[in-house]
Design a protein around this nucleic acid. Structure first.
Lengths: 163, 163
DNA sequence: CTGTTATAAGATATATTATAACATTCGCCC
DNA sequence: GGGCGAATGTTATAATATATCTTATAACAG
């Protein structure tokens, strides 16, 4: 079942401490919002926390269901407004191809990202992929195209699921 | 209003003969369907033709409105089924980020594509971008990711609109 | 021509995703 | 504590997509 270690791959995976991971993301979000003078209100914070429950992309109406224990009166607009805010602050990404949302794992920087979306476990890995972005930029230049969007989504099987 | 010619850009644009362009695309579609032993039925042909009316990405319900003069009884499923077929045959692309559809300009080949989506004129340019795909493949290897999807969508301003 | 099988299309209903519009409340500044 | 803008509540509806069941047609063998 297990494939032998690939000599090309660097260090073996550090086991993922998700509690820590979420904690860091939330702390970072709080910090950034203070810095920027915008309000990470209770609802927005809760939505962000719900999104970070896993690394899977999560749907708006799923968030709605999951926030109801905390916000009994929540309506679609409640979620979409929180999402609008979080997207604007770069704290989450919208996964266009899934109509779903995922926490941004490097919220500090404005950046282009590559999103690797696993069809099996549904987790989304975010990568900077500087070289890809650079080659893309050259392609845009050739096409005379002024790119705005900054996310590239690719579906497939992640390392854990491809085994 | 006009920007001077950019010395980096190759030949000036060949004026686009859209009638020819559509004709070619439809002929190619007919040929491929015969080759593959699948049926390009009247509805499917009409939908493909409607999609090719422009190089803009077109919405399913817009197609529905536009096919009604020809197919008075058309319902959402009519369009979605035709689209499913056309997508399966690689004759059109789904633009995930717009929930819209656009004709595939190189239907013959199975291939990876870069879709340059103009925010202003809404046209979609399809490019092979071999080098981009190659660098991406290397990135996937590093991530241990087995990519399935083959389309990359980028929003921005096209050559005509950026001027 | 007729029966058989597979595929396509019609028809209805409903699920899912997202926004509009307007009212109300909250938090902050003065 | 009054005014202002941001945030949230509330209701309604728009836009996108699929499920399911029925009916029709194509293709082909006998």
């Amino acid at each position: 079942m297990n494939t032998p270690a690939d000599p090309m791959l660097p260090v073996p995976e550090i086991p993922h401490n998700h509690k820590q991971c979420v904690h860091d993301a939330l702390k970072m979000a709080e910090l950034l919002c203070v810095e920027r003078g915008v309000q990470l209100t209770a609802i927005r914070h809760q939505v962000l926390e719900l999104i970070w429950e896993s690394h899977k992309a999560v749907k708006a109406y799923e968030l709605l269901d999951r926030i109801r224990p905390l916000q009994a009166a929540a309506k679609p607009a409640t979620i979409y407004r929180a999402l609008d805010f979080l997207l604007a602050q770069g704290l989450v990404h919208r996964v266009e191809s899934l109509n779903a949302f995922v926490g941004c794992s490097c919220s500090g920087h404005q950046h282009e990202q590559l999103l690797l979306i696993c069809k099996q476990c549904e987790e989304v890995e975010e990568r900077m992929a500087a070289e890809v972005m650079q080659v893309l930029a050259e392609e845009f230049r050739q096409a005379g195209f002024a790119a705005h969007s900054k996310a590239i989504e690719v579906h497939g099987l992640c390392k854990k699921c491809v085994g």
